[in-house]
Computed example of a mutant assay.
Amino acid sequence: MQVELRHLRAFVAVARELNFTRAAERMHLAQQALSTQIQRLEKSLGTDLFVRTTRRVELTAAGELLLAEVAPLLESLDAAFERTRRAGQEGGLSIAYTPTVAPEALPAGANRMHREYPTITLRTAEMWQPESVEGVRSGRLDVCFIRTRAGTGDLATAVVRQEPLGIVLGDGHPLGRRPVVRIDRLGDTYLTIWPRAMSPGYFDAVCEAFRAAGYTGPVREYENHTRDTWFGDTVARMEIASGRAFSVGFRSQPLTDGFVWRELDPAPSVPLTVCWREPANTTLRLFLDVVHAVAREERWLTDTP
């Protein structure tokens, strides 16, 4: 004898309503589909569960016995399912992120996570790419956000945003008066950027895009490695302010007085990649689902300058 759970749920719905139309609406089924499930249950049990007339539906003695036995079991099962679901929505996640994620992408994902799963705690830490990837690989971290096109070997990855990169200039720079700056107009002005060792995917993506677009100037790495990138590098700030250098960044990154952000032509698109270790537990899966939902709603994978 094979009895399916959905057939028992259909039976209880009809037994409580004593009306196939209302029971079908309650179950979000077509009435014929509901009737078919009841017939299959009766066939499996070898007995009629309902007396059907043109005017009314009544339980048989067998139907009354089955309702008394099955209804509490289904309620207990539903309660167990709900407890299990809630257990999967508790606990915590440790998240690492590259500095460029802090102004916009990280808050968007974290705020959505707090709204939908308030019992899950988040612990976030800003890290450079090699450290965060190694933290996920070792199990010290659950997930990280990095700027890279390349894979990370044994770790799972998914690109959740393609973000156009812009240029940061001193507000007195002649090119700063233009709404869009052509990369090949930058001449010998040098590019200041994070050290490659701290974010190799980002460094390579930027330099490759600039060289391909005709930029021939030198590239210098920041000397003062703070979380505020060039904000904390006095030499870099002075060079950018003087017009001898420029930096790059995303529209979402904050600027201080004396500097401007402009779009680039062509605009390099730098991916934002989420990285984790499989198999992912339930809590991590919920977080990944939230991040992908935010990416779809914000159209992060179709960003244009």
Rank of each mutant, 00 (worst) to 15 (best):
L122G: 01
R123A: 14
A125G: 14
E126H: 01
W128K: 12
W128G: 14
S132R: 06
S132T: 03
E134V: 00
G135S: 12
G135H: 05
V136L: 03
V136G: 06
G139C: 01
D142A: 11
V143A: 15
I146C: 13
I146K: 11
I146P: 10
I146M: 10
R147C: 13
R147D: 09
T148L: 09
T148F: 03
R149P: 07
R149A: 14
R149Y: 15
A150V: 06
A150E: 15
G151A: 05
G153V: 10
T157R: 14
T157G: 14
A158H: 15
V160P: 03
V160Y: 10
R161W: 05
E163F: 00
P164A: 09
P164F: 00
G166N: 04
G166T: 00
G166M: 02
G166W: 00
I167A: 08
V168W: 03
V168P: 00
G170F: 07
D171E: 03
P174Q: 04
P174W: 09
P174C: 08
L175A: 15
G176W: 01
R177I: 06
R178C: 10
P179Y: 10
V180E: 12
V181R: 03
V181G: 09
V181T: 09
I183H: 07
R185W: 08
R185T: 13
R185G: 12
L186K: 08
G187M: 11
D188N: 15
T189I: 13
Y190E: 14
L191S: 07
T192Y: 09
I193Y: 00
I193S: 00
W194A: 11
P195I: 09
P195V: 08
R196D: 01
A197P: 00
M198C: 11
M198H: 07
S199G: 13
S199N: 11
P200N: 02
G201N: 08
Y202W: 02
F203T: 07
D204H: 07
A205E: 11
V206D: 04
V206H: 00
V206L: 02
C207Q: 08
E208L: 09
E208C: 12
E208S: 12
F210E: 07
F210C: 09
F210A: 10
R211K: 10
